[in-house]
């Protein structure tokens, strides 16, 4: 099963993602901000990161940029309530591989993951 790191400052959203993912994935970490996301990524080297954008201390786009700079092979899917075109372009520039907007349903999450990390 692929290893997944969840980065989201909302406990509610972390729980929701865990419920959706835990059947087919190993959740190797749940973090609340961009700094922790970068550190935990280095430590656990997961197959996939589900990354929120608006987080305290450091946002998800900056964290994605650093993860991708260190490891261009990393797989990062933005998982955010932000639906702004300019933000999506920034996410692409930072190297994001996919973009899911909240609120989401399980099938769209699975589909996005399948596109980025095919089983």
């Amino acid at each position: 099963m692929p290893d997944v790191l969840i980065a989201d400052d909302s406990e509610f959203m972390r729980n929701l993602l865990r419920e959706i993912l835990e059947e087919d994935h190993d959740i190797v970490g749940e973090v609340e901000n961009g700094v922790e996301a970068v550190e935990t990524y280095k430590e656990k080297d997961p197959d996939l990161v589900m990354m929120d954008i608006v987080m305290p201390i450091r946002d998800g786009i900056e964290a994605t940029d650093e993860i991708k700079t260190n490891n261009p092979e990393a797989n990062v899917i933005m998982c955010t309530s932000v639906g702004q075109e300019e933000k999506m372009k920034e996410a692409v520039k930072a190297g994001a591989d996919g973009y899911i907007t909240k609120p989401f349903q399980k099938p769209s999450v699975m589909e996005a993951i399948e596109d980025v990390v095919p089983t």
């Binding site: 608006v54 305290p56 309530s81 702004q84 300019e86 609120p103």
Partner: peptide, 28 residues
């Protein structure tokens, strides 16, 4: 409620950003 508020906030301001072709950031 915190997460719902977050998602409703985005729903509300994203339209401004897209029409104005800019980005509107918000705090958590």
């Amino acid at each position: 409620i915190e997460e719902l508020g977050n998602i409703m906030t985005s729903g509300f301001v994203d339209g401004w950003a897209n029409v104005l072709q800019t980005s509107v950031d918000h705090t958590p």
